[in-house]
């Protein structure tokens, strides 16, 4: 199992030793901070009106939930760029053969790569999650809702990365992997819109498949076992598919 950590460490090093990771972090931080501050100012300006309302939305609902939604949008765009080269680049540079000959299993390679890229997003999420905490300067947060949203965000990014990793095993060209990852994720995002009218079994299935549907309820602080299981199944499915894909590749042909 130590192979996982070796691969993950190698992945993290190569990520953070390239300027790309830092530029991505900068862009993501800047965009999300801009949107976050806009939402804070919005809340400050409507606060007097909200005070007169019964059961008015609080800071967490107005500011934090929106920040988490925005993070999902940004993640959708950034993740394909960071997952595209995971396997396909190794294949292009012929380094995959080296990995194959090393004493590590396919599962270790896939999980190591996955953990490597996820650690980058852990850094990103830590940055995003620290923004709302700064609001403690002047108020409080609904920490339950905040934690549920954060958990949802990590699961969502985990699902995105797993899909990106799998698509990266399918092609030699990182650009193709990136575009197809983006396309797949966007499809899973909008598929719910088709499922919103009517009440047939198909619509229920489409709504279930939709990747954002489950995130939304976590953002709102509804912790549902089905939503968690959805993301875990999603991640496991794509990791197993990736492992099988690489196993098939190791076969001489």
């Amino acid at each position: 199992m130590s192979g996982i950590w070796v691969i993950a460490g190698r992945e993290i090093r190569s990520l953070f030793l390239s300027p790309l990771a830092w530029i991505v972090l900068t862009v993501v931080e800047f965009l999300l901070a801009y949107l976050f501050l806009g939402q804070v100012k919005l809340f400050l300006s409507v606060q007097p009106r909200l005070a007169g309302m019964d059961n008015a939305p609080g800071v967490t609902e107005v500011v934090v939930a929106e920040l988490f939604r925005n993070t999902a949008v940004i993640a959708l765009m950034v993740i394909p760029i960071l997952t595209m080269r995971l396997i396909s680049e190794e294949r292009r540079n012929q380094t995959l053969t080296l990995l194959f000959s090393a004493p590590v299993s396919m599962a270790e390679i896939v999980l190591g790569k996955y953990l490597g890229v996820m650690s980058f997003f852990a850094v990103m999420w830590a940055m995003v999650a620290s923004m709302p905490l700064m609001l403690y300067m002047g108020g409080q947060l609904d920490l339950g809702m905040y934690a549920a949203g954060l958990l949802g965000g990590i699961l969502l990014v985990g699902a995105f990365c797993a899909a990106g990793l799998y698509l990266s095993t399918l092609t030699l060209y990182p650009a193709v992997a990136a575009i197809s990852t983006f396309g797949l994720l966007l499809l899973l995002w909008v598929i719910e819109w088709a499922g919103k009218v009517g009440d047939s079994v198909l619509n229920n299935i489409l709504t279930y498949i939709s990747i954002m549907h489950h995130y939304e309820s976590l953002i709102e602080g509804v912790f549902s076992s089905a939503d968690i299981v959805y993301y875990l199944l999603f991640i496991i499915t794509f990791l197993i598919l990736s492992i099988r894909r690489l196993d098939a590749r190791r076969m001489p042909h």
Partner: peptide, 10 residues
């Protein structure tokens, strides 16, 4: 399902 918000908003 559980409502994890402190505000019990769900």
């Amino acid at each position: 399902t559980t409502d994890v918000t402190l505000n019990r908003r769900n």
